[in-house]
Design a protein around this nucleic acid. Structure first.
Length: 423
RNA sequence: GGAGGAAUGGCAGAGUGGUCGAAUGCACUAGUCUUGAAAACUAGCGAGGGUCACACCUCCGGGGGUUCGAAUCCCUCUUCCUCCGCCA
């Protein structure tokens, strides 16, 4: 959520920046400012009424104490009208505040100045590429066929138990999955991220604070009976660890990592692009989350990008990094880098990580603040990134490491797996 | 699931209808003293709105109510604790 004072002072810049998202924000912003003005006017009126009524109440108390019940009774009548007035004003104020809130929820974050204009993923800007695309054997298979051939992932079995999009990992497939989780967590811990284990179901307040609600209500599984949401990413519970906190700025950077399953309803879209592991209702992911001083957040973002590059180098997967264009940028992000691994057998790039700086947008909803040198509260910056999403890493590994008679395991993973090939 | 108790500032903890945004202690910050530190002493020290700055307003787990007036009384929800039951 954008901060109101910022909108007040930089109305035109904000409208200009949001054009990069292909959003015509002028009417929205105007309405916000209008409501904000109404809000302040009502608040001032209400405050004055309450002040008057407070004053009278004190007088009445004093009159009673000095035995002047008669005079007190006269004053009492006056407070009656004030009370009615303040009730009405309070109701009006609530209505305006609610409307204002709803509007603010509809305004996405302001894109960083480096975000390229554009409307689709075709307009994303490639900023880095590394790793050789392997020459695969003749008749190289996509991962869903490899999974079947070596009996390591069973999609049909998952359909029986739950439905499409819930794969069952078997034998070496399951072990490789566990190895990847352990490896990612170890890498993140070595880079200074504190490992956390967090709930996989969250309440509504958490969903609002990180921005999944009300924007992406339909993407999350909702447990109606208990009014809880299955997490679509560890970002939600992990970032919410800091909700409502006022931290000492000496504590920055605050760095967390967590492995969780992720649950996504992901309505629609069938065909080759969602085959196999490409798109699932449940998948595993290791996430990194940071809270930073505003002065450091972009440096931190670069650090996170380098960290993920390092992991992909160790896995020896060919990858590229994209700077997302305005049209592809998530609602809450100011700047996002996507990582994509080249899946040779599918002949396409697969998104395996998304690293973003949210600046104060999430922090404003979270109410995550710190005390600056003047002792004033200021919103922190939050960032997060996948390091990494398992299914597509697995897809890339299976497809790029296949040989005639088996799948090689990358060297860094062998000690985690306890085997060096799947055959 | 049943019975009882509780929720107050970073922490501990007083406050049971008015002068309470809230005693006191600890922690923290600044200063004095000291070669330096500790101790001692002095001062400051919750959050939000509002204002050029004051004033002023709101917040004692959340919501609602009673009252001229609520941290304090009532209703309700949530959470925690104790005991019983069940249980990985």
């Amino acid at each position: 959520m954008l901060q109101l004072p910022l909108i007040r002072e930089h109305q035109n810049e904000i409208i200009g920046s949001l054009k990069k998202r292909n959003i015509e924000a002028a009417p929205l912003v105007e309405k916000v400012l209008q409501l904000d003005e109404e809000r302040r006017a009502l608040q001032t009126k209400l405050d004055a009424t309450l002040a008057e009524s407070n004053k009278l109440s004190k007088e009445i108390g004093n009159l009673f104490k000095s035995g002047k019940a008669q005079e007190a009774t006269v004053l009492k009548e006056k407070t009656g009208t004030l009370k009615e007035e303040s009730k009405l004003l309070g109701d009006d104020l609530n209505t305006v505040v609610k409307a204002l809130q709803d509007l603010l929820y509809q305004i996405p974050n302001i894109p960083h100045s480096s975000v390229p204009a554009g409307s689709t993923d075709a307009d994303n800007e490639e900023v880095f590429r590394e790793g050789d695309i392997p020459d695969l054997i003749a008749g190289a298979l996509p991962h869903w066929e490899l999974a079947k051939k070596y009996d390591i992932i069973d999609f049909e079995l998952g359909v029986k138990i739950s439905g499409a999009g819930f794969p069952v990992y078997k034998g070496k497939g399951a072990r490789l999955q566990r190895a990847l989780i352990a490896y990612f967590l170890d890498k993140n811990a070595a880079a200074g991220y504190t490992e956390m284990q967090v709930p996989h179901l969250v309440n509504e307040a958490s969903g609002y604070a990180t921005g999944q609600l009300p924007d992406k209500e339909g993407q999350m599984y909702h447990v109606g009976e208990d009014d809880l949401y299955l997490i679509p990413t560890a970002e939600v519970p992990v970032t919410n660890l800091l909700r409502g906190e006022i931290v000492d700025q000496k504590e920055f950077p605050i760095c967390y990592t967590a492995y969780t399953p992720c649950f996504r309803r992901e309505a629609g879209s069938y065909g080759a692009h969602v085959r196999g592991l490409n798109r699932l209702h449940q998948f595993d992911k290791v996430e990194i989350v940071r809270a930073e001083h505003p002065n450091n957040s972009y440096q931190a973002l670069d650090g996170m990008v380098e960290h993920i590059k390092d992991i992909l180098r160790e896995l020896k997967l060919p990858f590229r990094v994209l700077r997302l264009c305005g049209g592809d940028l998530g609602f809450t992000a100011a700047l996002t880098f996507d990582f994509e691994v080249f899946s040779t057998a599918q002949d396409r790039w697969l998104e395996i990580s998304s690293v973003s700086n949210f600046e104060t947008y999430q922090a404003n909803r979270l109410k995550l603040r710190f005390k600056d040198e003047q002792g004033k509260s200021q919103l922190a910056h939050t960032l997060n990134g996948s390091s990494l999403a398992l299914p597509r890493v697995l897809a890339g590994l299976l497809e790029n490491y296949q040989t005639e008679d088996g799948i090689e395991i990358p060297e860094v993973l062998r000690s985690y797996c306890g085997f060096d090939r799947i055959d």
